Simulated assay, not measured.
Amino acid sequence: MQKYRHLLFDLDGTLADPSEGITKCIAYALEYFGIKTDNLDTLRSWIGPPIKDSLMQIYHFDEAQANLGVEKYRERFTDIGIYENRLFDGVQELLERLKDEGYSIYLATSKPTVFAQRIVEHFKIDTYFDFIGGAGLDDSRPTKGHVIQHVMEETNLSDPSQALMIGDRKYDIIGGQAFHMDTTGLLHGFGSRAELQSAGATYIFDNLAELKKELLFLNSF
């Protein structure tokens, strides 16, 4: 692994496990359309990509139906599902140490910025981020690539060779590659090793502890 200056972190499945809240909110939205979910675990694969895309791809919703589905999802998520969430072990210590080591740290999530901001504030990790970038409630920045572009533009990050995109799904890897960034896949989230390898992740680690060890080792030179 080479040395980097800028670290872009995904949120869901990378820094936090939102599976309870997201799956319950998806089930709530699907129920509105008469679709019953017997096992919430079957919805775990929805975590990562935009909900609208999943509704259109899995249930073949048209755009109007998908937009309504997102509205129903947010109806429960805004005040309930957003807090059915937990940080992975060691996240605060990781961010604090990386900040002390001089890294610039950005959040790049497909979750709307307004929700991402509330989540990191809830967990008291907001101060570690130089910028929090997410999707727009108005369907702007619909892909991870759009979010990464937004982060780069807002932070004047002009040299992607100095940046590392860190996530747990292929969308994080593909998004980083679109801007010629190296990418890291984490296996403690919702993507498999096969998914991350197939997407072309530059590095793959089992968890944040392994990533932390490598980044601190590189920064010691």
Results as ranks from 00 to 15, higher is better:
141 R>V: 02
153 E>A: 14
169 R>D: 01
49 P>V: 06
45 S>W: 10
134 G>P: 00
75 E>M: 10
189 G>C: 09
155 T>Q: 10
10 D>C: 08
15 L>V: 01
29 A>C: 13
114 V>R: 13
56 M>C: 06
181 M>K: 06
54 S>F: 04
140 S>V: 09
184 T>F: 09
170 K>A: 10
49 P>S: 09
38 D>M: 00
211 L>Q: 05
118 R>F: 00
79 D>L: 13
149 Q>K: 15
118 R>M: 12
74 R>W: 03
13 G>M: 07
142 P>K: 04
121 E>F: 00
104 S>W: 10
97 R>N: 15
10 D>E: 06
53 D>W: 10
135 A>V: 02
131 F>E: 11
17 D>C: 01
119 I>R: 08
62 D>W: 06
3 K>Q: 06
2 Q>E: 15
208 L>G: 02
57 Q>N: 15
45 S>V: 15
61 F>Y: 12
118 R>T: 00
68 L>M: 13
195 E>Q: 14
190 F>K: 05
27 A>L: 08
11 L>N: 03
49 P>T: 03
74 R>S: 10
97 R>E: 15
155 T>Y: 12
42 T>A: 15
68 L>C: 11
98 L>K: 12
183 T>M: 05
156 N>F: 14
172 D>Q: 04
113 T>E: 14
119 I>E: 07
71 E>F: 13
185 G>Q: 07
137 L>D: 07
12 D>F: 03
204 I>L: 09
22 I>R: 02
136 G>P: 07
196 L>H: 06
165 M>K: 09
138 D>G: 11
114 V>A: 11
4 Y>A: 00
117 Q>N: 10
13 G>Q: 03
83 Y>F: 13
